[in-house]
């Protein structure tokens, strides 16, 4: 069995990762860290290709919270890209953002919420928003491609000017529901 390309998303445009990339550039994001997800593949490629961005692959998402605290201490803005399972992995570390009041911008690709076929993805997918909110994170959900750029822009403003943890959850309606069938 091998992973296939995502099934057709309900949202019409597929170049929304480019909108995220342009928005991160507009907010002077210099450090991008991630545990890869298929939904972030194009954005990760765009960031890797940008000499003005430092991308760091993590072994687990909680490393990303600590990394971005260090980046902020050194004067750089960052963003953490992850799948929603990472929201479970970062819970304690995410407390640093509130305690130290540093910006924590998270871009979260969803599983387990829209037409999910894999039962193992459902618990964390359903718990992503409450878990993030329990740690004081503001969560913006996006289901339509045209809303991606403006939502990430608003989230970055809230994070970097408000010194606040903010997550944008990118729905499977946008990404497409993963299948292993074709």
């Amino acid at each position: 069995m091998s992973a296939s390309a995502p099934a057709t998303p309900t949202s019409s445009r597929s170049d929304w990762p480019d909108d995220i990339y342009r928005t991160l550039k507009a907010h002077d994001v210099r450090q991008v860290c991630h545990v890869p997800d298929a939904g972030h593949a194009r954005l990760i490629d765009l960031c890797n290709a940008d000499a003005g961005m430092r991308t760091t692959t993590l072994t687990t998402e909680e490393e990303g919270v600590a990394l971005l605290l260090g980046a902020w201490l050194g004067g750089e803005r960052g963003a953490l890209l992850m799948q929603c399972s990472g929201a479970g992995n970062i819970v304690n570390m995410l407390g640093l953002s509130r305690t130290c009041r540093f910006p924590m911008l998270m871009l979260v690709t969803m599983r387990g919420e829209w037409g999910e076929f894999n039962p193992w993805q459902i618990p964390m997918g359903q718990a992503t928003r409450p878990v993030l909110e329990a740690m004081g994170t503001t969560v913006h959900d996006v289901t339509e491609a045209q809303a991606v750029g403006p939502t990430v822009d608003a989230a970055a403003g809230l994070a970097f000017s408000g010194l606040h943890p903010v997550a944008v959850t990118l729905s499977q309606q946008l990404i497409g529901t993963k299948t292993f069938e074709d």
């Binding site: 450090q31 990394l67 260090g70 050194g74 960052g78």
Partner: peptide, 10 residues
């Protein structure tokens, strides 16, 4: 990891 983020920024 805080040290890594800081060392990359500085």
């Amino acid at each position: 990891m805080v040290g890594l983020g800081l060392s990359l920024a500085q």
